[in-house]
Every structure is written in C-alpha cells, then in structure tokens.
C-alpha cells in the first residue's frame, strides 16, 4: 500500500530524513518510535505534502501512485489521512461545516454521491459519540478552544467519517490521559480491517498496550535503524533510547 524508498527531506535547509525505507501492506499496523528530533513528525508532514518540507531524494508510492507528485488534497482523496500532533484551530468555521465540506470533497473525488444533510448529521453525531465528545463540539469553531485531548478526539472523529485507507497518527497519544487514550485506541481498533492500514508515530510505548502493532520500527537521525515486533517496543521502554545509541548508532 505504502512504499517509502530512500527518503531524504529537509526543512529550512536542514536535513531531517536521511534515507528512510518503509513498506506497509494492506491491513497492517506499524508503529514508529524514536527520540525527540529523530524525524518522526517530519515523516507525517512530508507524507501529507506540507509546504516548507522539501524532498531531496527518494520516492513514495501510495496505492500505486507517486505520492510526492500529488497535491495535499489529492492525497486525501486517495485515502491518506494524517491525524495531527497539533491540530489547527479555525475560528468562525464550525466543526460541522468543516466536516461536511471535507467528507463531501473526498466522496466527490471518489465518485460517490454526497450524503444528504440529515444523513450526514446523523453520521457526524454517531462519530462524535464514538469518540466520547459532546455534540456541542459540532457547533463550535474547528478545534477552537478545545483541550489537547478534545483536539485529538476531533482528529479521530474526522478519521472515522473520512474512512481513509491509510491512517497516520502523529503522536496522537501525547498529552492524553488514560481514559482519552483508551477512547483513541478503541476507535482505531474498531477501524482496523484487512484493507486499512495504520502508521502510529509515538514517543512512548504506552499507546501500544492498547493498539497492538504488527511491526515496530525505531527511527533515529532520520533513518529506521531497527524493526521488530511489539517486544522491540517493550525493550525500548525498559532500556530507553540511549540503549540504541550504544548498540547501533554510535
């Protein structure tokens, strides 16, 4: 589904990704762990096509297409979803107006008919309930004045409504208490299917107690330096990232 080969990227002239390789097949859940500054968030931004992130080398193929040639919205139309670490506040545009515009745009691009208003509102309310957010959040400005946890639930709600093929969760667990994390985890677990894949980017092993990945990768200095199963995450948690510095990088 996603094939990243020898990806190099820089931000403001600084090399962040330095030859990253990753293969994600349909239905798989991958976790990428790594210390601060290793390039974890940059990977999500690059895959979403964020301005200011320049790819200097390598390729990314998503569902048979050259991802790097697509506009940001075209990537979303194809089924790529990035849950932001820091979701953006948009005062004056209600969450409901935003969700409808988003779902309509994605469905239109996929040749599906738009939901009628009543049908869409029912779905939005269901998604709201599924992530344990009060319905009042649908009326409020997008992420406006939401707490950290509420923003993350709002990201998850969008993910449920858009039904993407590949979900990238950029440190969705950071700043969440245990209850909120369980909500996020059960949302993700409910969406797991044979045709949908996940890439969980996280600093801590904690999230992986609730969402069991098929593969765990360790990112350091812009490259994946080690891959394994969940035992790798546990080992990291026990020994810390410095363990890798000693054994692999140095």
């Amino acid at each position: 589904m996603l094939s990243i080969k020898d990806l190099h990227a820089e931000v403001e002239g600084k090399n962040i990704l330095k030859g990253l390789n990753l293969e994600i097949r349909e239905g798989e859940v991958h976790a990428i762990m790594g210390p601060n500054g290793s390039g974890k968030s940059t990977l999500g931004h690059v895959l979403s096509g964020r301005p200011g992130y320049e790819i200097t080398q390598g390729s990314v193929e998503f569902l048979g297409k050259d991802l790097l040639k697509l506009d940001t919205e075209e990537r979303a139309h194809l089924g790529l979803f990035l849950a932001f670490q820091y979701p953006v506040e948009i005062p004056g545009v209600s969450n409901m107006e935003f969700l409808k515009a988003s779902v309509d745009a994605v469905r239109e691009s996929q040749g599906a008919s738009a939901y009628d208003t009543v049908g869409f509102m029912r779905r939005a309310r269901e998604a709201c309930a599924a992530v344990d957010l009060d319905q009042a959040f649908l009326k409020r400005g997008v992420n406006e004045g939401f707490s950290g946890g509420e923003k993350k639930r709002n990201e998850l709600m969008q993910m449920m409504l858009l039904e993407p093929r590949l979900c990238i969760l950029d440190e969705t667990d950071s700043g969440l208490d245990i209850d909120a994390m369980q909500v996020v985890a059960s949302g993700v677990n409910a969406m797991r299917s044979e045709s949908r894949s996940f890439l969980l980017v996280t600093h801590y092993q904690r999230l992986l107690d609730y969402i069991e990945p098929d593969f765990v990768h360790v990112l350091a200095d812009g490259r994946i330096i080690r891959s394994g199963d969940t035992s790798l995450a546990l080992e990291l948690e026990a020994k810390g990232y410095s363990w890798l510095d000693d054994s692999e990088v140095a």
Binding site: G49, E73, V88, I90, E97, S102, A105, V106
Partner: peptide, 21 residues
C-alpha cells in the same frame, strides 16, 4: 494546509477560511 489534508481543494479552503475569518 489542515483543510487540504482533509480533502478540501485549495480554492474551496480559501473560501471557507475567508468566511471563517
């Protein structure tokens, strides 16, 4: 960028942001 990652084309996103402003 946030709106575009949700599939909303750039021109529509600009309209939505002007409205929101």
């Amino acid at each position: 960028h946030y709106l575009r990652t949700r599939g909303i084309p750039a021109d529509e996103a600009l309209v939505l942001l002007s409205y929101g402003f």
